[in-house]
Nucleic acid binder design. Structure first.
Lengths: 224, 224
DNA sequence: TTCAGTTTACTGAACGGTAAGTAGAATTAT
DNA sequence: ATAATTCTACTTACCGTTCAGTAAACTGAA
């Protein structure tokens, strides 16, 4: 079955692009990993760029799928927001190769395909902005510069590509939990509120805290 | 003067690596930009990797310089933390090319040099962790998973490499102001606090808020 | 016999890097 | 002061290698 083989090729290509980078991976590398020759590889694909394009498309579409099903769930904004962050961070453990390739090498795509992918990614961002708007309107979040807040949150999440290891101590869910705790409960201590002195070790507000989670997690870079 | 020419070469190389990526930039590209031939370029440098290495080293060292002078200033932890975030974000406007190359292509360095650079970057991170520790100990911040909080903050800041344009509407200072506001004052609305309604809008501590800043800022990617 | 899937053998272009040579300015010797 | 020498800053021409991609022949199963 051709489809099966094609998916194997995509998986291997994504892994190698992720490990070494798109430009540094040769078609011979990919072929060798599949125990075939380079021309055999070209029997299934047209160009190297196509490979990258398919990977990026799968990545952004998988991101969108999650977003759409969360939006369709009709839950309260806060829960939808939490689900969204969890989904995005989960991508790094469930589909690490493709999301890392997408984040690192999307810029290597030929202009037209790159613009198409970026269009999808703008759609994705706009959902984040709308959700933040809802959260502000319902009074959960305060007024803020929405595009900048989205960039801050995206940055926290997407930066996982620079340190997260699936085999590490921190699970994606644990990371999402900590990040959401920081977003919803802030960094500041209750005791730091002007006025009273002693710290109340987050009385009730922050009971979704992260404390029990491992306090360390090793880092090491992805590209060898 | 040879030093002068060498600095020109570094500047041009950083710009091209930033625009097209290290791997996609050829030595002829760099030479052409300097109106000389490739061998003339090799009169000044040893290898292509050296070029990348020097750029990364300048980037991380400039980051460290700032950190050290801030630490030496002996100000209160909160002010040092704010200065640190401002310094880091300012790197993107003052030395955008080198920091972007450092963040994007450091992984292309040959093993030994890469490890040296990563050692420096670990030192840099540990300063962040220590500062967070101080902030917690003095009661400004609550107990938290420090390494994860550092990653969240680094992510917010370093993600600038994916959307910040120096010629855009948002200045580095404005961005730092917004991010610091989010970190110190959180996302959550005062009204959303359970129990009692109004919270003191952090009397003095947080009057550096971002609200008046532009609510939008265009994004577009760096690599052509 | 057919044909999907594969191989061997190759092309053309581009790459990082080098060898060898040189114009002209700077330095030294006479 | 001038002639001889050395040095800086390059150039032309090229090497060895690697790359994406292809033509055409082969193989084994239905």
């Amino acid at each position: 079955m051709k489809k099966v083989r094609w998916e194997e090729i995509m998986t291997v290509a994504a892994r190698l692009f992720c490990e070494k980078g798109y430009m540094a991976t040769t078609m011979d590398d990919i072929a060798a990993e599949l125990y075939i020759t380079k021309p055999a590889l070209y029997y299934y694909i047209r160009t190297k760029h196509d490979l990258l394009y398919e990977i990026c498309e799968v990545a952004i579409k998988r991101l969108m799928e999650g977003v759409e099903s969360i939006e369709a769930s009709g839950g309260p904004p806060e829960e939808r927001f939490r689900e969204l962050v969890r989904w995005q961070i989960n991508m790094f453990s469930e589909h690490g190769d493709i999301i890392n390739v997408y984040l690192a090498d999307e810029s290597e795509l030929p202009t037209e395909k790159r613009e198409y992918i970026r269009g999808l990614s703008r759609e994705y961002e706009s959902i984040y902005r709308e959700l933040l708007r809802e959260l502000i309107d319902e009074g959960t979040f305060r007024e803020m510069n929405i595009p900048m807040a989205v960039r801050a949150i995206s940055g926290m999440c997407n930066w996982l590509s620079n340190w997260y290891r699936p085999e590490g101590k921190m699970t994606a869910d644990a990371i999402a939990g900590i990040f959401l705790d920081l977003i919803f409960n802030g960094f500041r201590s209750d005791a730091a509120m002007p006025g009273v002195g002693t710290r109340v070790k987050s009385g009730r507000v922050a009971k979704t805290t992260s404390r029990p989670e491992a306090v360390t997690a090793q880092a090491a870079d992805r590209k060898h």
